[in-house]
Simulated assay, not measured.
Amino acid sequence: MFQTSFSYDALPMRVRFGAGSVASLPTEVERLEARRALVLCSPEQKRTGEAIANALGDLSAGVLAEARMHVPVEVARHARDRAAELGADACVAVGGGSAIGLGKAIALEHDLPVIAVPTTYAGSEMTAVWGLTEDGRKRTGKDPRVLPAGVLYDPELTLGLPVGMSVTSGFNAVAHAVEALYAPDRSPIISLMAEEGVRAMAGALPAVAADGGDLDARTQALYASWLCGACLGATTMSLHHKLCHALGGTLDLPHSETHTIVLPYALAYNQPAAPDAAEALSRALAAPDPAHRLWDLAGSLGAPRSLRDLGVAEGDLGPLARQVVDAPYANPAPVTLDGVTRLLRAAWNGEPPRVEP
């Protein structure tokens, strides 16, 4: 059914897309009237971060290779202090959600503009959502100050992303679009982007898995991640993200793998209550049951499909379900303790997702 009343906020950022676009980074830093940009990355991406800093030349304030998953608050505090010590007036976040999340933490404290250079498909660069983990709990919020001022999508930088990580990162992106299709603040514009993002990513991932050096497939996947991330940035998160925040923040699970495992089960939970979203996903995935299709696709690409395989103990499920139910996000289907417990148990076992009427 077409929505006849809605609102849509365009995000104020500049995006450059295409192979080789990272060469324009100095120009983008100067466009912000910045003179000392601190390059942020994870320890694994240190070599890439140093190459970016070298390309910036005199515009670089150095490299901080300390980004970690779920942005632990102690890491964020050290990064904020380091940025102040170096006199940084901008940040360039290179990598996935961990690096970009660290840039957002600095922006939240010091109002420094962030330029994101994504090398995964996480999509954080398209949102004003920040997250910090402290004492085993992940807090999230929205603040326009943390929205990157610029994004450089260069598919050549994703060629080194291992195939397994590429697949799970792609599923992470798909999760953003899936939830946007049934978000309470969705719009026809976002729904179009979400459906196209899912279609493009589902088409790109098998080609990426077959040949990680396929630049055309990498370009399509990065395009899809842009669309999916923009959907996340424009809508309210639902049960899927609440589950992943609880799992990641409490158990320090790998981010994209957790999203990959949880997505089919969260979608199956919501499909009966979101028929328009299910119809759009059926078109995008060319399948009558989108939840089962995503579970099948993950398996065919060698992605994990069980929380047990990530080290989650059976005894963790009850407290996690209670955490989710005690502070739920907006969701089309009622979030009940029994329902969430059954969802988590199915995901823990890795059994095929079942859509219940």
Rank of each mutant, 00 (worst) to 15 (best):
E179F: 13
C228P: 02
E257K: 10
L64M: 13
T168Q: 10
I106V: 15
D276M: 14
A224V: 10
T127I: 02
S282C: 09
E30R: 15
L294V: 10
S7M: 06
V151K: 06
L227H: 09
A246V: 15
A55C: 10
A37L: 05
W226D: 00
V174Y: 02
T260H: 04
A207F: 02
G164T: 10
V114I: 09
L222E: 04
F2K: 15
L205D: 05
T120K: 03
H241N: 08
R308D: 08
P184L: 13
R82A: 13
L320T: 01
A177V: 06
L86C: 06
D9F: 02
L301A: 07
V167C: 09
D338R: 10
G150V: 03
S187D: 07
S187Q: 07
G339N: 06
V129Y: 05
L152E: 03
L227A: 15
D214Q: 05
T120G: 02
G164Y: 07
A273E: 15
V129L: 14
Y223M: 12
E109V: 13
L310R: 11
L59E: 04
A99I: 09
A107Y: 01
P113Y: 00
V63E: 09
L232M: 15
P206H: 05
T158K: 04
P12Y: 13
H70I: 04
A330E: 15
A99Y: 01
R16W: 08
G299N: 10
L152K: 01
G136R: 04
A149S: 15
Y121N: 05
T219R: 08
E314Y: 13
L152G: 08
E196N: 13
M13H: 12
R47N: 12
G131K: 05
R218M: 10
R354K: 15
I190W: 00
R308E: 14
D296I: 00
S60C: 03
P155D: 11
A93V: 03
K138V: 01
G311I: 06
L243V: 02
W295E: 03
L243P: 08
G164W: 04
L243Q: 07
A330Q: 14
N54H: 07
G136C: 14
L317W: 13
K142Q: 15
L157T: 01
R31P: 00
R47W: 01
A286P: 00
L102T: 06
T4G: 15
E125H: 06
G57N: 03
V178S: 06
V325N: 11
S306M: 06
L205M: 12
E179T: 14
E109D: 14
E44A: 13
L157A: 02
G103W: 11
H78C: 01
S238F: 01
A51D: 07
K46T: 07
V114Q: 03
H255S: 08
S124D: 10
M1Y: 07
G96S: 10
L112W: 09
L320D: 00
G315M: 02
L215C: 11
L297I: 13
R218V: 11
S191L: 11
Q271P: 05
D154T: 03
R305Y: 10
T119N: 03
A280I: 00
D135P: 00
N331I: 14
A217N: 11
N270F: 05
A221D: 03
S187R: 08
Q271H: 09
E74G: 01
Y8N: 07
L337K: 00
A268D: 06
N54I: 00
Q3K: 13
T133A: 08
V198F: 05
V312N: 12
V178A: 05
C231N: 13
P319G: 12
H240K: 13
T250M: 12
